[in-house]
Design a binder for these strands. Sequence first.
RNA 1: CGGGGUGUAGCGUAGUCCGGUUAGCGCGCCACGUUCGGGACGUGGAGGUCGGCAGUUCGAAUCUGCCCACCCCGACCA
Length: 489
Amino acid sequence: MKLLTKKSENYSQWYNDLVIKAEMADNSAVRGCMVIKPYGYAIWEKMQAALDKMFKDTGHENAYFPLFIPKSFFSKEASHVEGFAKECAVVTHYRLKNDPNGKGIIVDPEAKLEEELIVRPTSETIIWNTYKGWIQSYRDLPILINQWANVVRWEMRTRLFLRTTEFLWQEGHTAHATREEALEETMKMVNVYADFVENWLAIPVIKGVKSACERFAGAIDTYCIEALMQDGKALQCGTSHFLGQNFAKAFDVKFTNKEGALDYVWATSWGVSTRLMGALIMAHADDNGLIIPPKMAPYQVVIVPIYKGSQLQEVVDAGNKIKQMLLEKGIRVKFDDRDNNTPGFKFATYELKGVPLRIAIGPRDIQNNTVELARRDTLEKMTVSQDMLIEKIIELLDEIQSNMYQKALKFREEHTYDIDNYEEFKKLIEEKPGFYRAHWDGTAETETKIKDETKATIRCIPFENKEEPGICMVTGKPSKQRVLFARAY
RNA sequence: CGGGGUGUAGCGUAGUCCGGUUAGCGCGCCACGUUCGGGACGUGGAGGUCGGCAGUUCGAAUCUGCCCACCCCGACCA
């Protein structure tokens, strides 16, 4: 049975199939929205837990702000409105009634809201309106708050996990007394994201700053992490914005500093979303299905019993014993002792779901005091003595985690090219999609021209860039360093 | 919003051009039995407003009109 279209045939189709068949998500009845299924949600919960701890460890607290934002709040920061206006869902009425013509139910025209409410596409405005009431003195600062929430952006085109109309995310919103402190926070959080994505999701990222065109609406600077997917397209995995005093000015948030003078507060905001689930899928999966890194996996080990009728009890007992041993070591394990599926079916199922390690145990193993252990990342199978099993599993989970990272890193390196000739760039971005490091004159005009002609955008100006003087590949004007181009999701 | 495509059982589909018995098949599902070291098999069974509405006709999944939904490619975007 053909479960997935091959990656090479139609990557989009392959990705959709994979998401749906691996029990991550379904398309929902609402345009552009998705149902996150239990298996997918379990992975999201793992992400939440890891990130939440990292936020707390860096001094942040969680809070919650409203879903609805009065329209007037939105208009206060000019570039922010401009950036989001085109994709907002708007609540205009608060009541339904029976259709007087007897055709079901209609919106009651009498129940029109005095002021429309925007369903948050991001919460800067309502949060800064709130912070205004919280901040009078430098002693009230910093405010370091994170919110776990859903947001709505009415994009034209949607894709499961990568760009859904409604999505889940966290958004941090901080307020500081000084520019330096806010800048430090912005950098700190982009580093937290990079740390998380690399060490937990096993996806290598490039940290950098966005060009003016790609910057968040309302920010002075946007820092980001960019990853490369297996089809050669880039995916922005997280952003951290230095908002300067833009929102403080828009919402009139002033404080008395140590010197007794009034000043506007400095702000940052930062977020990652369920898009990371898309990244996880696209960075690692193969034609057999998902590959979930051990630190993210809802279950790290699955035990599949193999038996003929009379051996059932013996094999199930052995399986339970192994399960118990693994649980005691804090390893997340599932023992699939359903008797209505064959072992082969289960093998395929858990490969599709991306479970990092599989134990198969049957009569032969019981006789030899062994199990068969199979790695999802390499599909390698080995026979292991039960006495060594726990140690071996702990070792392998570690190894799989780092092997996945190394493999993704190697892929990225093999798909990162230096390019100096624009004509060649136009050709190569088509034939060999990936990251292209090129000189750029720093102007929005050139960037826009490149985007229009090639669909490639500047993903970021990497932080860890060595000084390398050159000339812009389009205009020939001087450039201090190479920037990162790619086609992106 | 433009261009292309598709809607038939939970999923995948045949049939539509050229209207004609009870809409067929595979997977899945239910029952029983045999199986079980890489997606098992047999027997029996359940499951359909053929996307919707209207029209043409003795008769519509099939023809006509309108509408709706979804997918792919653009524009937009995390």
